[in-house]
């Protein structure tokens, strides 16, 4: 059982508060959705959690260990995986090689100068790709894949590091609706199967309310609601943020 405890996270840019006092707890088996209008601070929140940005104050603890101040690669090594809003894979490698890179990194074998990389960890990489439905495309260059398929590869890469916590920034952005639901269903399955703790942001409300176990609503850097999908949907404040209050 893993637990990510976020307490009073704050971060400003040039005097403007992007994230102002966000607190929540993420546990194994949770599929926690973070939603909110554009500019609410969702991506900033993610960047604070995985070490890309340093918070002005607040703490992020993984099973009691403070993550604030560590570089992204250390946080990754402690078991916090991440996928990006804009897909970022290694475009000059094949699909399988992308996953193999993560496995090599996990095994601390990256400094090898002699044995070809393509032959190392190929089997486990293929197994992971099979799991996300990309087995048949393992040897295609990652740079020519359809957008939705790249998102699957990213998921396989994230799984390859055997994370206990997975941060997914808009995992289905740019995908067709059917693809979105399939990917969310797969994610939900993985959460159950591996006891993952997942935090994800999402614009597609079907994806959010269909699969999330809990929902956090962020507006102008602050959490304005937290609860089960039904509770959040019924919350008048959430409705006003999404449909607009005053004019």
């Amino acid at each position: 059982m893993s637990e990510l405890v976020v307490r009073d996270l704050q971060r400003s840019f040039g005097g403007v508060q992007a994230v102002g006092g966000v607190s929540f707890t993420l546990r194994s088996g949770n599929l926690l959705a973070l939603i909110g209008p554009n500019g609410a601070g969702k991506s900033t929140c993610f960047n604070l959690l995985n070490g890309q940005l340093r918070p002005d104050s607040g703490s992020v603890k993984l099973d009691g260990m403070e993550l604030v101040g560590l570089p992204p690669r250390r946080i990754w090594a402690l078991g916090v995986g991440r996928t990006f809003q804009i897909t970022a894979t290694f475009a000059s490698m094949t699909v399988a090689e992308n996953v193999q890179m993560v496995l090599l990194s996990r095994a601390r074998r990256l400094f090898g100068l002699w044995r070809p990389a393509a032959a190392q960890f190929r089997e486990p990489a293929l197994a992971l790709l099979e799991r996300v439905g990309m087995g048949s495309q393992a040897d295609r260059p990652c740079g020519v894949l359809a957008y939705g398929d790249v998102k699957r590869v990213e998921l396989a890469m994230a799984l390859a590091s055997e994370p206990t916590v997975l941060l997914m920034d808009e995992p289905t952005a740019g995908m067709a609706p059917a693809e979105r639901l399939a990917l969310m269903a797969l994610t939900a399955e993985l959460v159950r199967e591996r006891g993952l703790a997942v935090l994800f942001t999402e614009h597609d409300m079907d994806a959010v309310f269909g699969h999330a176990t809990r929902v956090l609503v962020l507006d102008r850097g602050r959490l304005i609601a937290e609860g089960s999908p039904d509770q959040v949907r019924a919350n008048p404040r959430v409705q006003s943020v999404y449909l607009g209050g005053e004019a």
Binding site: R73, S92, M101, L113
Partner: peptide, 30 residues
Amino acid sequence: LLRRAAFAPFGYALRAGRDSGLRAESVGID
């Protein structure tokens, strides 16, 4: 030797940093 290195994990890690530094750092590549 250079060629071996290019196809070994070292060369791949180098390319990983070029293709996407963000992603490389987030999977533990310095």
